[in-house]
Amino acid sequence: MKKPALAAALAVLVLPSLAAAGGPIERACLRSDRQAANASTCNCIQQVADMTLRSGDQRRAAKFFANPDEAQEVRFSGRSSDSAFWRRYKSFGEAAQAYCG
């Protein structure tokens, strides 16, 4: 009986702080100068990122908010790893547009 109560208490204390921290995409979105960058939209985009991108991909994609030219470098790179990342990133973008747009 005590374990479920303890787990519930921990969830109440820990989960809000984890949600407030946000992921790399959400943080980058909120720091960006884009007009549509608001807490609700950025959180939605992060949720899609959590469903579609690995954590390393999220960190890499977050850099695009500050440096869009880097996205173009990756897009036109001849490296197979960049091409694979770009396919995942493009799928993420399409899903985010459909879900959050």
Rank of each mutant, 00 (worst) to 15 (best):
65 F>R: 00
59 R>L: 08
38 N>W: 07
41 T>M: 14
90 K>V: 09
80 S>L: 14
35 Q>Y: 13
65 F>G: 00
69 D>E: 12
4 P>Y: 11
42 C>T: 11
41 T>R: 12
80 S>Q: 15
85 F>K: 01
54 R>T: 14
21 A>G: 08
76 F>C: 04
48 V>I: 11
54 R>H: 07
12 V>R: 13
88 R>I: 01
41 T>A: 14
2 K>E: 14
98 A>F: 07
59 R>Q: 12
52 T>N: 05
58 Q>M: 06
9 A>V: 11
50 D>P: 13
41 T>E: 12
31 R>H: 10
69 D>G: 15
59 R>M: 08
82 D>E: 04
43 N>V: 04
55 S>V: 05
39 A>G: 11
30 L>S: 03
24 P>D: 04
56 G>I: 03
12 V>D: 10
96 A>L: 00
23 G>V: 04
45 I>F: 08
43 N>D: 07
15 L>M: 11
81 S>F: 07
84 A>W: 04
43 N>H: 11
85 F>T: 01
91 S>N: 15
89 Y>C: 01
9 A>M: 11
59 R>S: 09
78 G>A: 08
8 A>T: 08
92 F>E: 00
85 F>A: 01
2 K>H: 10
52 T>Y: 02
83 S>F: 09
57 D>N: 11
37 A>Q: 06
28 A>D: 02
14 V>W: 07
27 R>S: 09
75 R>E: 15
19 A>F: 10
95 A>D: 09
12 V>A: 15
7 A>K: 10
44 C>F: 04
12 V>N: 09
28 A>P: 01
80 S>D: 15
26 E>H: 09
51 M>Q: 15
81 S>T: 15
26 E>W: 02
62 A>G: 02
19 A>R: 08
82 D>W: 02
48 V>A: 00
66 A>R: 14
10 L>R: 05
80 S>Y: 12
78 G>V: 07
84 A>L: 06
32 S>D: 08
48 V>H: 00
18 L>D: 05
96 A>N: 02
24 P>K: 04
36 A>H: 13
45 I>C: 05
23 G>I: 02
65 F>H: 01
85 F>N: 00
80 S>M: 14
39 A>L: 10
21 A>V: 13
97 Q>I: 08
45 I>A: 11
58 Q>S: 05
43 N>G: 14
21 A>F: 15
42 C>V: 12
68 P>F: 13
40 S>Y: 08
34 R>I: 13
30 L>Q: 03
41 T>G: 10
71 A>S: 05
38 N>M: 07
89 Y>I: 01
49 A>G: 06
57 D>K: 03
87 R>S: 14
57 D>W: 03
60 R>P: 06
101 G>M: 09
7 A>P: 04
77 S>T: 06
60 R>W: 06
44 C>I: 06
49 A>V: 01
100 C>H: 02
52 T>P: 02
30 L>W: 03
3 K>Q: 11
66 A>D: 15
17 S>E: 06
41 T>C: 09
88 R>A: 13
27 R>W: 03
82 D>I: 01
6 L>F: 12
72 Q>I: 03
23 G>K: 00
32 S>W: 04
73 E>R: 13
